Amino acid sequence: MALITFSGYPCSGKSRRADQLKSHLESLLQAPSYTGRKLKVEILSDDTLNIDRSAYDSSRSEKPARGALFTALQRQMGQDTILIVESLNYIKGFRYQMYCAGRELKLRMCTVYVLTPAQVCKRWNEERTDGRKYAPETLDNLIMRYEEPSSMVRWDSPLFTVAWEDADVPAQDIWKAVTEGIVKPPNVGTQSVPKAPTDALHILESITTQTVSAIMSAQSMNVATGGPTALSLPSSPPLEVRITLPPRNVTLSELQRLKRQFVSVHKKAIVIGTTEKGHVEFGERSVAEKFVQYLEENFKP
């Protein structure tokens, strides 16, 4: 139903803010004024996945940690869940990846930026006694590489900034964003491309060959040439299509040339799918009608 991405320096207080927001959202969901569907609020974080802080000591160990977070995110996202992702999320490319995953499921999304000065983060890191402390050099490196969220880019907006001195999160504004915000349609680039049926190549070759034979047969039987002509194709079951022929005899070589062009164009769509309105249709009647239309458009006068 919604995806809330937290972002901020290490040890900036994101966990505390996420807990505050979860508590507020659960209260709003249980309020008598709420009449929507039944939802649950979940927090996904490095701690819930048992990802140690040492995973960020090197890019080699950080990459699988981010992969584990993204896999868990995909598994927990859903129409019955408000998912709070409380992690560093300091790379804008990773935030965009999560944004695209949310769009695929038509979720409402927002970003919460926990803004805390670097020196405060370093002090809080040193004061930790729960075993979740970052190595000083790791902390410095993460702060240096941090890519700040921006309300100007679609994957970070709407953006809510929570300063470290603030007593609480803007729960009402976030609630409005995740319950009334715009649901963006899936990105075309993230949608799976439908594939043609396994016998599409056979149908394409068979139907176009039958159509060429039917045109040659119709021309040999008619004294007058040109005009609307009914073609009977010996498929199973038999098909009948209509074609408007030019006012001359169409030669076999011309038909074969147009057939090769048509088949060549559509073979690519069969092999890799087509993005034309997300629709793939390679039934016998559809192929016959498309081929007839292609011939009519390419016949020379």
Results as ranks from 00 to 15, higher is better:
E297A: 06
A68H: 10
Q191R: 10
V112Q: 05
I207Y: 04
P158N: 06
G131Q: 14
N141L: 06
Q210L: 15
V271Y: 12
L107M: 11
T116P: 02
N89P: 02
A269S: 14
R242S: 11
S15W: 05
S217L: 11
P64V: 09
K92V: 05
Y134R: 04
E180T: 12
C121N: 04
L88H: 01
I51A: 02
S59M: 08
V250G: 00
W175P: 01
S220W: 08
H279Y: 13
G67D: 10
P32Y: 11
E127N: 15
S232G: 09
D199F: 11
P64L: 09
S213Y: 10
D199T: 15
F299Q: 02
Y113H: 09
Y146V: 04
A72S: 07
E276M: 15
S206E: 11
G131E: 14
S15T: 13
A2F: 02
S87T: 09
W164Y: 10
D156N: 08
A200E: 01
L295D: 00
E42H: 15
V169I: 12
R95K: 07
N222G: 07
Q97S: 01
K267S: 13
L115K: 07
K106F: 14
C100R: 02
G227H: 03
G278P: 05
H279I: 13
S61H: 14
